[in-house]
Structures are given as C-alpha cells and as structure tokens.
C-alpha cells in the first residue's frame, strides 16, 4: 500500500507540471493582463511601467512562466497584479479552511442522507418512498442553487422578524463577538447552516440516485443471494454484503466532488458571503488578476489529484478484492 501511494504521488508530479503549463498558457492566452488597466484613468503610464517591471511582463512567455513557477515555489505564489503588499498564499491559506468547513459539513450530511435514501429506495424498489425519493432527486437536480439559497435566506429572515429568534444567520462567517471555544463554533455553525443546507439538498439528490442504482445492481448479484440462502438476517445482508460493494461508485463520485468543491462552491459561497475559495476566485476573475487566478487553479488541480488518490486508496478498504500492486 505504501509503495502504491508513493508511486501515485510520484506520478502526480508530472501531472501537476503539465497542469501548471496548461494553466499558464490558457490564462496568458486570454490577453495582456495590463490591457484593461491601460484604459483606466487611475493607472498612470508610470504605474503601468512599475507593474511591468515587477511582474516581468516585458520578458518572453517562457521566462514569465519561469518567474511564475519560481514565485509559486519560493515566494508563496507571489503577489496579486495590483497589490504588491499582499502574498497570494496568505489569502489562499485564509480561504481554504473556510471552504473546507462548508464542504465537510455539507458532504458528510449529503453522504449520510443520500446513501440512506439510495439504499432504502433500492431495497423498497417501486414503493411510495422510492417514487418520492426519485421525485425529490429530480427536484434537487433541477433546482437552481441561487434560488434555493435566496428562499432559505428569506425563510430564516422572516422567522427572525416574526419571532425575534435567530436560529441561523443569512450571511457571513462569524458574528462580531462570537466568543471563544464552544461559543465560537456554535456561532460558526449558525452561519454555515443555511449554505450547508443549500449544498446538502442538491448533493443528496445526486448521491441518492447513484446509491440506488449501484445498490440495485448489487442486491441482485449471486453472492448476495448466497448470503440470503445461508440464512443471514436481511439487515446483515444489506449492510455488510451489499452496501459495502455498492459504495464504490459513490466513493468515486464523492471524492471527485470533494476535490472539485475545494475550489469553492462559487455560487453558494458568494451568495452567503462566506470568505472561501469561490468568492476569492470570482473576485480575481472580476479584477482580471491573472496571478491570483493561476494560483487558485493550481491549488484546485492539486486538490483534485489528491482526492483521486484518496478515492483509489479507499477502494482497497471498502472492497478487499481490490489490491494495490
């Protein structure tokens, strides 16, 4: 197993190198990062010249790439285009934990509920519950995230206006004086609850469908029939024999989802004003800051590679038939 992990990690190096080249080429292909500034009266010729010097924008593209990689490795991804006093990595270090908190909460809830719904739908195929779960899933897939987010915001605001009880906050990460320890975390949960609900409701639909399909395939297989024939209780057959194998596709999907979500649930985080990877990326795009965009893309690419590896390792634990050579 250790050899396998080390080998996969070594494979990741050329993958990430290729990703860095692709990211640099695709972002620089969009155009000169100073083009928009030249139209902006707030940026004098002297200021633009200063930025060109700082960012080596007069050098050839390969040299610019080399400077960028050097900055990324030795200088915390360097600085944004216009704020030479800020380190990009310091900003990323700030926003990644915020995104992780949201993603962890929503993915865990979504997995628990989605898997449960999927399993129950499969073993009670064509029951009222199954039809209801299917309807809910289609609703979940079809529901625009911004609409659901706004509806939940309005709902909890109206609860506050009517009963003066603040169950959940509708935006932000923390109150002004949340206190320390447990008070801080309760306050944080009150802030993350609605965005987590938004993400969870959508993910439940996805995981529920995957789990149902996978479970249906497994419960009709020979070894499950054998387990039943041995006289094992239905609960043991379902949870120990069928579920474990049926989980593999869900693990793949959730690991890839998780990796991608490290890049931020852009819409959800932006609507709820959570200082995470999503709004950070959006801000960089709007201000056309190529250096921040490239750093964000590198971090996201790394997360996707890492979670792919985690998914592969998890297969071995879930299904002992899978071995790592």
């Amino acid at each position: 197993m250790v050899t396998y992990i080390i080998r996969r990690l070594l494979y990741s190096i050329p993958v990430l190198f290729a990703a860095s080249v692709l990211i640099f080429v695709s972002v620089t292909a969009v155009g000169n990062p100073l083009a928009a500034l030249k139209q902006n009266p707030l940026f004098s010729t002297q200021t633009i010249h200063n930025i060109q010097q700082r960012k080596h924008l007069n050098d050839s593209l390969p040299m610019q790439y080399a400077y960028w990689i050097k900055d990324a490795v030795t200088n915390k991804f360097g600085t944004p285009l216009l704020q030479p006093g800020t380190k990009i990595w310091d900003d990323l270090k700030r926003v990644i934990p915020h995104t992780l908190q949201l993603v962890l909460i929503s993915e865990i809830f979504a997995l628990i509920v989605g898997v449960a719904i999927g399993v129950y739908s499969a073993i009670r195929q064509y029951s009222i519950f199954d039809y209801a779960a299917t309807t809910f899933s289609f609703l979940g897939f079809a529901m625009p995230v911004f609409w659901l987010a706004l509806m939940l915001q309005i709902l909890f605001t109206n609860i506050f206006i009517k009963w003066h009880v603040r169950i959940f906050y509708t935006s932000g990460l923390s109150s002004q004086n949340p206190g320390g320890g447990i008070h801080f975390w309760i306050d944080r949960l009150q802030h993350l609850a609605i965005p987590a609900m938004t993400l969870t409701l959508l993910s439940i639909a996805q995981y529920g469908r995957f789990m149902r399909a996978s479970m249906l395939e497994v419960i009709n297989s020979d070894y499950v029939r054998t387990a039943r024939a041995k006289g094992l209780p239905e609960r043991t057959v379902t949870l120990k024999h069928a579920l474990r194998n049926a989980l593999i596709p869900v693990v793949t999907v959730s690991a890839l989802n998780f990796g991608a979500l490290i890049g931020g649930a852009v819409i959800t985080e932006s609507i709820f004003q959570l200082d995470g990877m999503g709004p950070y990326f959006l801000g960089a795009l709007l201000s056309q800051d190529a250096y921040v965009v490239m750093a964000w893309l590198m971090v996201t690419a790394t997360a996707v590679v890492a979670f792919n590896l985690i998914a592969d390792v998890l297969y071995g634990y879930i299904d002992p038939r899978i071995r790592f050579d």
Binding site: F160, H164, V165, R166, I167, F168, Y169, S175, Q176, N177, H183, I186, D187, L189, Q190, A193
Partner: peptide
C-alpha cells in the same frame, strides 16, 4: 435548542 438560545442572544447583542 442551544443554537436557538445562542442565536437569540446574538440577535440581541446586535
């Protein structure tokens, strides 16, 4: 309950 109590207190402090 603790969320509601903490929330109500949070609302008041604002």
């Amino acid at each position: 309950t603790s969320l509601i109590v903490a929330g109500a207190a949070g609302g008041a402090s604002k």
